[in-house]
Design a protein around this nucleic acid. Sequence first.
DNA 1: TCTTATTTGATTAAAAATGGTCAAGATTGT
DNA 2: ACAATCTTGACCATTTTTAATCAAATAAGA
Lengths: 154, 154
Amino acid sequence: MRNMSDIIEQYLKQKIAESHNEVVEIKRAQIAEKFDCVPSQLNYVIKTRFTNELGYVVESKRGGGGYIRITKIETHKKADYLEHLLNLIGDGLSQTNAMHIIQSMYDADVISFREAKIIDTVIARETLMIGLPERDIVRAQILKKIIEVILYEE
Amino acid sequence: MRNMSDIIEQYLKQKIAESHNEVVEIKRAQIAEKFDCVPSQLNYVIKTRFTNELGYVVESKRGGGGYIRITKIETHKKADYLEHLLNLIGDGLSQTNAMHIIQSMYDADVISFREAKIIDTVIARETLMIGLPERDIVRAQILKKIIEVILYEE
DNA sequence: TCTTATTTGATTAAAAATGGTCAAGATTGT
DNA sequence: ACAATCTTGACCATTTTTAATCAAATAAGA
């Protein structure tokens, strides 16, 4: 590695990789000190290597307790993941399995906590007040349609 | 949490959430001591995070037995609105009427655009592949349960 | 009741803590 | 040498923290 910017870039990418959540949060001055460079070098590194085009979102806050947060957004992976779920679901689906899938979607960051709660409610047997085997069929259908909505939005 | 102001903000919001009444009443000096900060920090937190814009009303009184009371009014209004919708929905519900309600919820800012799309999909007759009159009954049930989730969250 | 003291919150300005911009100078690859 | 990339530093902007001083409400005393 020949220069500071590359080293810092590697460091940040490693941190992102380490956090399963695909995110790293730093204090600018602290990292600058760690690598013995001026703080604004961090801005340079971020501006040239963590751009939107490259799939990163950068947020920051100044003042006491300030930070810089870099998030990697993996659109492709998410689509693949959702397609995978779609294939997973057959003609019928138990409530337990459905809840596992919903939890998985929340963990994978493709739905919000509130969305997860809403979907959980929708597929609950108390909501779907019809008997088996129709209930499992409707549940599968509902979840598949929801996944399609998320998959094909935008 | 990165700084005192955020911590205090969280604390107050949690207190509001705990009180079903959507309100919290504090003694400024007491909270300042609890978090080991100067009293005026409470004013700062309130001024920057519990504004009218954000749906809060702040009342206070000085002198012996003084207090600061923060009320979340937006929630009240939204809760009333959602209760109203709940009463509106009977045992059955057509797709058209359901979509009107969903649109109304989106307009009233109680659900996001994506949530609206998801719910639209869920209550569509193509998703609910069962015959009438059961379909309208299940649809009503689904929408009511969803509204309850939104109503009783926090 | 009237006046004074005490309690308690409000305001505001200064200081401290962070991060952002930009442009000049240094380095590196071709 | 030229162009592109990197490094630095001076100056700026935002947010939080702190302290001094003001204002209002209640409590106490005459």
